[in-house]
Simulated scan of single mutants.
Amino acid sequence: MNAVLHATCVAFDGRGVLILGPSGSGKSALGLHLMALGARLVADDRTQVEVAEGLFATAPPGLPPLIEARGVGLLRADPLPRARLVLAVDLGARETERLPPRREWMHKGHALPLVHGPMTGHFPAAIRLYILSGRQD
């Protein structure tokens, strides 16, 4: 059972982050920044999420391996065909707490850790480290 979401997905070592938010919230921009830190593109703007002993992301059929860079254009990328999702970022919600509580994003009975987006200078680096090393409570 697959669902196509209005989201961008990039991955480090096959571990994906699903970037959610309304149009213009910076999904592609965050994806680009994470790619500059070593992530690979899975899908931009539309991401297919499948349930198979966890959540996995792929590009919907026919979606070209491109990512939008506002003010620059559509950029080609070497896509990763599939990534296990380990984190969701919601750029439609702003984090107000310095050390926020654990949150979850639910999809078809499966939970992913969720962070809200303060698009601060350290945010992309923090997301990369979260994906690769996890979070301490």
Rank of each mutant, 00 (worst) to 15 (best):
residue 1 M to F: 14
residue 2 N to F: 15
residue 4 V to C: 04
residue 4 V to T: 07
residue 5 L to D: 04
residue 5 L to K: 14
residue 7 A to L: 13
residue 8 T to M: 07
residue 9 C to G: 04
residue 10 V to K: 14
residue 10 V to L: 09
residue 11 A to S: 08
residue 11 A to M: 04
residue 12 F to P: 08
residue 13 D to R: 13
residue 15 R to I: 15
residue 15 R to S: 09
residue 15 R to Y: 09
residue 16 G to R: 04
residue 17 V to H: 00
residue 18 L to C: 13
residue 18 L to N: 10
residue 18 L to G: 05
residue 20 L to F: 14
residue 20 L to R: 12
residue 20 L to S: 07
residue 22 P to R: 15
residue 22 P to F: 10
residue 26 G to F: 00
residue 30 L to E: 05
residue 30 L to M: 03
residue 32 L to G: 06
residue 32 L to K: 03
residue 34 L to N: 05
residue 34 L to I: 07
residue 36 A to S: 12
residue 36 A to I: 10
residue 37 L to W: 02
residue 38 G to D: 02
residue 39 A to Y: 09
residue 40 R to S: 12
residue 40 R to E: 05
residue 46 R to W: 11
residue 46 R to H: 09
residue 46 R to T: 09
residue 48 Q to G: 07
residue 49 V to D: 08
residue 49 V to S: 10
residue 49 V to F: 02
residue 51 V to M: 07
residue 55 L to H: 09
residue 55 L to W: 08
residue 56 F to Q: 15
residue 56 F to N: 06
residue 56 F to P: 02
residue 56 F to H: 06
residue 56 F to L: 07
residue 57 A to G: 08
residue 58 T to F: 12
residue 58 T to C: 15
residue 59 A to I: 14
residue 59 A to Y: 08
residue 59 A to C: 08
residue 60 P to C: 15
residue 61 P to E: 11
residue 64 P to S: 13
residue 64 P to I: 10
residue 65 P to Q: 06
residue 66 L to T: 10
residue 66 L to N: 10
residue 66 L to A: 11
residue 67 I to D: 12
residue 67 I to W: 12
residue 67 I to G: 14
residue 68 E to F: 13
residue 71 G to F: 01
residue 72 V to S: 12
residue 73 G to I: 10
residue 73 G to A: 11
residue 73 G to D: 10
residue 74 L to R: 03
residue 74 L to A: 06
residue 74 L to W: 09
residue 74 L to V: 02
residue 75 L to T: 11
residue 76 R to Y: 14
residue 76 R to M: 15
residue 78 D to S: 11
residue 80 L to H: 11
residue 81 P to Y: 04
residue 81 P to W: 04
residue 83 A to H: 10
residue 84 R to S: 09
residue 84 R to N: 15
residue 85 L to S: 00
residue 85 L to T: 02
residue 85 L to G: 01
residue 88 A to F: 02
residue 88 A to R: 02
residue 88 A to T: 08
residue 89 V to H: 01
residue 89 V to P: 02
residue 90 D to H: 02
residue 91 L to M: 06
residue 92 G to A: 02
residue 94 R to N: 00
residue 94 R to G: 00
residue 94 R to H: 00
residue 96 T to G: 05
residue 97 E to G: 05
residue 97 E to H: 05
residue 98 R to T: 00
residue 98 R to H: 00
residue 99 L to R: 01
residue 101 P to S: 10
residue 102 R to K: 13
residue 102 R to I: 13
residue 103 R to E: 03
residue 104 E to T: 08
residue 104 E to D: 10
residue 104 E to N: 09
residue 106 M to P: 08
residue 108 K to D: 12
residue 108 K to I: 05
residue 110 H to M: 03
residue 111 A to H: 03
residue 111 A to E: 03
residue 114 L to E: 08
residue 115 V to G: 08
residue 115 V to W: 01
residue 116 H to I: 06
residue 117 G to Y: 00
residue 118 P to G: 01
residue 119 M to R: 12
residue 119 M to L: 03
residue 121 G to D: 05
residue 122 H to R: 15
residue 122 H to E: 04
residue 123 F to M: 02
residue 126 A to H: 13
residue 128 R to V: 09
residue 129 L to A: 07
residue 130 Y to C: 14
residue 130 Y to A: 14
residue 131 I to M: 12
residue 132 L to A: 13
residue 133 S to R: 13
residue 133 S to V: 09
residue 133 S to D: 15
residue 134 G to M: 06
residue 135 R to Q: 06
residue 135 R to V: 05
residue 135 R to E: 14
residue 136 Q to E: 14
